[in-house]
Design a protein around this nucleic acid. Structure first.
Length: 660
DNA sequence: CTCTCCCT
């Protein structure tokens, strides 16, 4: 790495300043003990709150102590979120007075600053899972740090079992005299649920490091609240009228609640007298375009208090400065999965105690604060300690395929920290079998191996891999990319009619898949003109991400000898037939009464109002997603003919006929 | 007549 020449004296001064800064962190006093513990143990659990500096300092301690090196192997630190991986690497590069991509780097999708000089690499847990496909023992790493373990994301949970297994294999190999370095594991978590992690990693040593959160006064309601919107509104204005300066962060379950409350807060705020401090309501949720999300970071005008109305996005992903008060309605939308009927759900649930504390902590990041819980202390006591890990409430098809492709063939007896139900595992295996990703003995097929190599759900990778046969790879790549991002359409609640009108221009009579194709065509014709996107309510950020995904998928196709430019032109039935090879189980047939009944499970399903097929009748429909919210809604829907089904999945539909 | 959140 060539670096610009610098005054050696200046560099020394900078290093000195950094060291001084690091020494002030609470964790620094425990430096020697931490190093000794990691040196003496195969696995260590580090428990520390936000602000303890564990994620930036411990990798540096490990490196400074010589526990990792280019010869022994380097350090990987995983994060559940991309921004965190990027920012941590930048921070630690600065602290070590090195250039990003030198000693310290990061790897996230579409952005890799690591090099063969890198000794500390921050990466998303998803990227480490991809590395496992290429290097089953992760031999380039001497130390693997899994951070934010308490969040229990699906990917972190998979990594728990996989690196535990890798550690055992590498230890055995080293003991037998093979030239393999044993692996060290460090698990970092913010909650006090240390024993569970310790037990899983063979009674690993536990280290506690103190954090730097300020005290937060916490209040409960005396009585249960029947209407959390009303309770939120009252609490917001009680704080506003009676408490000192500082912004308010309100946690709500979803977009609808946020939009309703935003309107109410604005109405009440308009009644404040001119002489009083004013209120500015800022909604915040993932589907909000980035330009509007940015408003939460704008300093409030003079004499104005910001009230941020947010989903769970403000619990971990977005940190807003200046929050002094948190209002917690105690609810969140959560994904669920019923393996017996194979239906996902998205429903409002009470949060867990740890989630409540996480929300509370958002008021104490810069100074002491206050948290108002809109539920009673008894209700709080009855909450679950922790949120059910994602692995126990989602479809496991993609996870099991990736396990198998990383050398874990027996996924039923895999070492899960929290074992998914047998029904859920079996259902996922059945799905993989029906897609021909595994054979009748459960072994990965050639097709399955190729499917696992794509950064997509198995259903989508099947579509891409079959697209050569249908002569529509170009279309499949475009549509899969657009389906891989959050909606490319944006519908502001106050301009619903205009947004719908603008969208009508792209509408294809056969449904959403081909409508997406029309949108992309139009986007290319105007070369992504920002004004055009705004006028047509297109979420530019999501289209751009989709195009990045498309570029990446094109490269994967080339590697798999699938010509990416093959197009079916106007024969668009080919596209829908091709999608059926991945989504034949996600189909429903029109009933005499005009409703749709799913082919698998005989469930009445409704077409989501955002769909191009909403209110339309077709002999059959295919959909990418079936989620129970207020009803069984299907999203991303296209019209199909039932006669296409046996061709798309002969094995599946012949077996079904035999079993009826 | 509607969409918690994150990742490859």
């Amino acid at each position: 790495m060539k670096q610009p020449a610098k005054d050696p004296k200046l560099i020394k001064q900078q290093r000195q300043k950094m060291l001084q800064f690091r020494r002030q962190l609470p964790i620094y006093s425990g430096r020697e003990a931490i190093i000794e513990t990691i040196k003496a143990n195969d696995a260590v659990i580090v428990i520390g709150e936000t602000g303890s500096g564990k994620t930036t300092q411990i990798p540096q301690f490990i490196l400074e102590a010589g526990l990792a090196s280019h010869e022994l192997g380097t350090i990987a630190v995983t994060q559940p979120r991309r921004v965190a991986a990027v920012n941590l690497a930048k921070r630690v590069a600065e602290e070590t007075s090195s250039t990003l991509g030198g000693k310290v780097g990061y790897t996230v999708r579409f952005d890799d600053t690591s090099s063969n000089h890198t000794l500390i690499k921050y990466l998303t847990d998803g990227m480490l899972l991809r590395e496992l496909l290429m290097d089953e023992l992760l031999l380039k790493y001497k130390v693997i740090v899994l951070d934010e373990a308490h969040e229990r994301t699906l990917r972190t949970d998979m990594l728990f079992g996989m690196i535990k297994n890798i550690q055992r294999i590498r230890k055995d190999k080293a003991a037998q005299g093979e030239d393999v370095e044993p692996l060290k594991i460090v698990i970092m978590s913010a909650t006090l649920d240390a024993d569970k992690f310790s037990e899983f990693f063979d009674m690993a040593k536990i280290l506690y490091v103190s954090g730097r959160l300020f005290p937060v006064d916490t209040f409960f309601t005396k009585e249960p609240q029947a209407d959390y919107l009303d309770a939120s509104l009252v609490t917001i204005f009680q704080i506003h009228l009676k408490q000192g300066p500082g912004d308010i962060l309100v946690f709500l379950p979803g977009q609808e609640a946020i939009e309703t409350l935003t309107t109410l807060v604005k109405e009440y705020a308009a009644q404040l007298r001119r002489s009083q401090q004013q209120v500015l309501a800022c909604p915040l949720f993932a589907a909000l375009p980035p330009s509007q999300q940015q408003h939460v970071f704008d300093p409030a005008p003079e004499n104005t208090r910001k009230v941020i109305l947010a989903t769970n996005i403000a619990e971990t992903s977005i940190t807003i400065p200046g929050i002094k008060y948190v209002v917690d309605c105690g609810l969140a939308k959560m994904r669920g999965f019923n393996p017996k009927i194979g239906v996902e759900s998205l429903l409002v649930h009470p949060i867990s105690k740890s989630s409540a504390w996480q929300r509370t902590g958002r008021a104490g990041r810069e100074a002491s604060g206050t948290c108002y819980r809109l539920y009673t202390e008894d209700t709080f006591r009855e909450l679950d300690d922790d949120t059910v890990p994602e692995i126990r409430r989602c479809n496991l098809a993609a996870a099991l395929l990736s396990l198998k492709a990383s050398g874990v063939d027996d996924v039923l007896s895999f070492d899960y920290m929290d074992r998914p139900s047998r029904a859920s595992l079996v259902r996922a295996l059945e799905e993989l079998y029906s897609l021909s990703a595994i054979d009748d003995r459960g072994h990965l097929t050639e097709l399955g191996k190729r499917m696992a190599s794509f950064p997509l759900d198995p259903t989508f990778s099947k579509v891409i891999l079959q697209s050569a046969d249908y002569g529509c790879t170009k279309e499949a790549l475009a549509i899969v990319s657009l389906l891989s991002v959050d909606s490319i359409f944006y519908t502001p609640s106050d301009k619903r009619e205009q947004a719908a009108e603008a969208r009508r221009k792209f509408l294809h009579p056969d449904g959403d898949h081909l409508t997406f194709l029309n949108v992309l065509q139009a986007y290319w014709e105007v070369k992504g003109d920002l004004g055009w996107c705004r006028d047509h309510f297109i979420n530019v950020r999501n289209v751009k991400v989709a195009l990045d995904i498309r570029d990446q998928l094109v490269r994967f196709c080339e590697r798999n000898n699938i010509p990416p430019q093959v197009s079916c032109g106007t024969d668009t039935d080919q596209v829908l037939k091709c999608f059926l090879t991945g989504f034949f189980r996600n189909t429903a047939l029109l009933q005499p009464d005009g409703s749709y009944k799913s082919v698998v499970g005989n469930q009445i399903v409704k077409i989501h109002p955002g769909s191009a097929m909403f209110g339309k009748r077709a002999e059959g429909i295919m959909y990418n997603e079936l989620v129970f919210t207020t009803k069984h809604y299907v999203r991303n829907v296209s019209a199909i003919q039932s006669s296409w089904l046996p061709e798309a999945a002969p094995k599946y539909f012949n077996n079904m006929r035999a079993s009826v």
